[in-house]
Amino acid sequence: MSASQSSAPLPEAMSVTLTINGETRQLDVLPWTVLLDLLRDHLGLTGTKKGCDHGQCGACTVIVDGRRINSCMAFAVMKDGARITTIEGLAQGGDLHPLQQAFIDHDAFQCGYCTPGQICSGVALIEEGRARTRDEIRELMSGNICRCGAYTNIVDAIEQVIGADGEAGR
């Protein structure tokens, strides 16, 4: 059936409410706007990276309602009402998130392109509380590819934060 025969109404922008890094915004988005492109191209939040655009690398990882997802594989309209945290939202005031600091301490990046996705993924992983051993960290971070191969130091950084949380009696 051709488009002209379709009974569907013509696509138009829709109003959605998103809370991004703590700030609630009302936005008009077209149905086919992908969350990653909304963040980067419409809202100027270019910390979130586009690697593959097909769910295969994790560079676009953001945290939506507490869960890490690939923002390249989500339409923004479908997230109406959601709370979204990107790399720009992790620092509190002037203080880096402990995992951001741990990435610096452990030299857990080279070119840095995968890093925002790695850190968002790692922050969610720590919240999930399922990874205790290095093997578990590796497996549960396997959705984030690092072409520079900084994996060993990334695991070190995450282990540092999990260890610190452990000592804090979590």
Binding site: R68, N70, M73, L140, G143
Partner: peptide, 9 residues
């Protein structure tokens, strides 16, 4: 299967 991010969606 897949990755933690994909399994969340």
């Amino acid at each position: 299967g897949a990755s933690p991010q994909l399994r969340n969606a």
